[in-house]
Amino acid sequence: MSILAQADINVLETACSPLNVLTELTCAQWQWLRSPETGLIMVRGRAGGTGVQFNLGEVPVTRCALRLQRDSHLSANGGAVGSTIGVAYVQGRNVRHAELAARLDALLQEPASCERIHTHVIEPLAAAQAARRDAAARKAAATKVEFYTLAREAQTPGNTGEEP
């Protein structure tokens, strides 16, 4: 869920474009349990980083939930139809992002589609996220100060070596 939530929406769309994932996404029967809704989450911090909690400010978040219904589900666990629920909470106001994330969340819980979604969507997204973070961290690392101590001039006659 974290990978899906933090993905760039364009990258996410691209990751979903391989035919077998698209088919999965569009052919299954979906029922909204909670249609996409944008609201706010209050972000909290702690005084001194570790102390009392306080309210820092809000971030917009879009959430939705839907139920996956399909015939194959019946045979998969012999249980009731429609027990797989996909949920998404995604930072920002992008309804499409939340919808895709919720659908993928449901498909990831299904043995029939789990592996395919992992290979085609989750792994590439995780790799892209890691690469993005790595690039930023390496640029920051290049600005790390390397201290060196100035070596005193070699002792010469007349230089007592006393601190000024």
């Binding site: 609201g39 989450i41 209050m42 909290r44 909690q53 917009p60």
Partner: peptide, 13 residues
């Protein structure tokens, strides 16, 4: 916008 919830305290460490 409606308030949907609160976050866990962020970990600045």
């Amino acid at each position: 916008l409606p308030r949907l919830g609160v976050s866990l305290p962020i970990d600045t460490g």
